[in-house]
Deep mutational scan, measured.
Amino acid sequence: KKRQCKVLFEYIPQNEDELELKVGDIIDINEEVEEGWWSGTLNNKLGLFPSNFVKELEVTD
Rank of each mutant, 00 (worst) to 15 (best):
K1C: 09
K1D: 15
K1Y: 10
K1W: 02
K1T: 14
K1E: 04
K1R: 10
K1N: 15
K2T: 06
K2V: 04
K2N: 09
K2E: 15
K2M: 13
K2Y: 10
K2P: 08
K2F: 05
K2R: 07
R3T: 11
R3Q: 00
R3W: 06
R3A: 03
R3Y: 04
R3P: 04
R3V: 08
Q4Y: 15
Q4A: 14
Q4N: 11
C5N: 04
C5D: 03
C5Q: 13
K6D: 03
K6E: 12
K6A: 14
K6H: 13
V7Q: 14
V7C: 08
V7I: 00
V7E: 00
L8T: 10
L8R: 07
L8D: 08
F9K: 15
F9Q: 14
F9P: 05
F9Y: 15
F9W: 11
F9S: 13
F9L: 15
F9D: 11
F9R: 15
E10P: 11
E10Y: 05
E10N: 12
E10D: 15
E10C: 09
E10H: 02
Y11L: 00
Y11C: 01
Y11D: 05
Y11P: 05
I12R: 09
I12D: 08
I12F: 13
I12L: 14
I12E: 11
I12W: 08
I12K: 12
P13G: 04
P13S: 05
P13T: 01
Q14I: 07
Q14A: 10
Q14H: 05
Q14M: 07
Q14T: 14
Q14V: 07
Q14L: 06
N15A: 14
N15Y: 04
N15V: 07
N15K: 12
E16P: 10
E16K: 06
E16L: 06
E16F: 01
E16V: 10
E16N: 02
E16I: 04
E16H: 01
D17M: 13
D17Q: 08
D17E: 15
D17Y: 10
D17R: 14
E18M: 05
E18Y: 04
E18T: 01
E18V: 00
E18D: 02
E18P: 00
E18K: 06
L19I: 12
L19F: 01
L19T: 01
L19A: 00
L19W: 00
L19K: 02
L19G: 05
L19R: 03
E20H: 09
E20S: 08
E20G: 07
E20F: 14
E20W: 13
E20A: 13
E20C: 14
E20L: 10
E20K: 13
L21T: 01
L21A: 01
L21K: 00
K22H: 15
K22L: 00
K22I: 08
V23F: 02
G24R: 02
G24V: 03
D25E: 12
D25C: 03
D25M: 01
D25W: 00
D25H: 02
D25K: 11
D25F: 02
D25Q: 06
D25L: 01
D25I: 07
D25P: 06
I26Y: 02
I26E: 05
I26R: 01
I26C: 02
I26G: 00
I26V: 09
I27C: 02
I27Q: 04
I27R: 00
I27H: 03
I27P: 03
I27M: 02
I27S: 03
I27W: 00
D28M: 06
D28T: 10
D28G: 04
D28C: 09
I29N: 06
I29F: 08
I29T: 04
I29L: 09
N30D: 11
N30S: 11
N30E: 15
N30C: 09
N30P: 05
N30W: 03
E31F: 04
E31V: 07
E31C: 06
E32T: 11
E32K: 10
E32S: 12
E32C: 08
E32N: 02
E32G: 10
E32H: 13
V33Y: 07
V33G: 05
V33N: 15
V33A: 11
V33I: 15
V33Q: 04
V33L: 10
E34H: 15
E34F: 06
E34Y: 11
E34G: 12
E34V: 12
E34N: 07
E34T: 13
E35I: 05
E35D: 11
E35Y: 06
E35L: 05
E35S: 15
E35H: 08
G36P: 00
G36I: 03
G36E: 14
G36M: 10
G36D: 10
G36V: 03
G36N: 13
G36K: 08
G36L: 08
W37N: 05
W37F: 10
W37E: 13
W37T: 07
W37S: 02
W37L: 07
W37Y: 05
W37C: 08
W38R: 04
W38M: 09
W38G: 04
W38I: 12
W38Q: 04
W38D: 04
S39K: 15
S39C: 13
S39H: 12
S39W: 12
G40M: 00
G40N: 02
G40Q: 00
G40W: 03
G40C: 03
G40S: 00
T41K: 09
T41W: 13
T41Q: 12
T41I: 09
T41F: 08
L42P: 02
L42H: 09
L42G: 05
L42V: 12
L42D: 09
L42M: 05
L42C: 10
N43S: 07
N43A: 12
N43D: 07
N43E: 07
N43H: 13
N44V: 01
N44G: 12
N44P: 07
N44T: 03
K45I: 06
K45G: 03
K45H: 12
K45F: 02
K45S: 03
K45C: 12
K45W: 00
K45L: 03
L46G: 08
L46N: 14
L46R: 14
L46V: 14
L46S: 14
L46D: 13
G47L: 00
G47D: 03
G47H: 02
G47F: 01
G47M: 00
L48S: 05
L48V: 12
L48I: 13
L48P: 06
L48T: 13
L48H: 08
L48Y: 12
L48A: 04
L48G: 03
F49D: 01
F49E: 01
F49S: 02
F49A: 02
F49G: 00
F49M: 01
F49W: 00
P50G: 02
P50Y: 06
P50M: 04
P50S: 05
P50L: 03
P50W: 02
S51V: 12
S51L: 07
S51Q: 08
S51K: 11
S51R: 07
S51M: 11
S51P: 06
N52G: 12
N52C: 14
N52K: 14
N52A: 12
N52S: 13
N52Q: 09
N52P: 09
F53M: 14
F53V: 10
F53I: 15
F53G: 05
F53H: 14
F53N: 11
F53P: 04
V54F: 06
V54D: 02
V54A: 04
V54Q: 04
V54S: 00
V54K: 02
K55V: 11
K55D: 08
K55T: 10
K55N: 10
K55H: 12
E56Q: 08
E56N: 03
E56L: 12
E56G: 06
E56A: 07
E56S: 07
E56I: 09
E56M: 10
L57N: 02
L57Q: 05
L57T: 08
L57A: 04
L57M: 10
L57I: 15
E58S: 12
E58V: 14
E58L: 12
E58W: 14
V59C: 11
V59F: 15
V59Y: 13
T60N: 10
T60Q: 14
T60Y: 05
T60M: 09
T60E: 13
D61V: 08
D61Q: 13
D61F: 03
D61S: 02
D61R: 09
D61Y: 06
D61P: 14
D61L: 08
D61I: 09
D61N: 08
D61W: 02
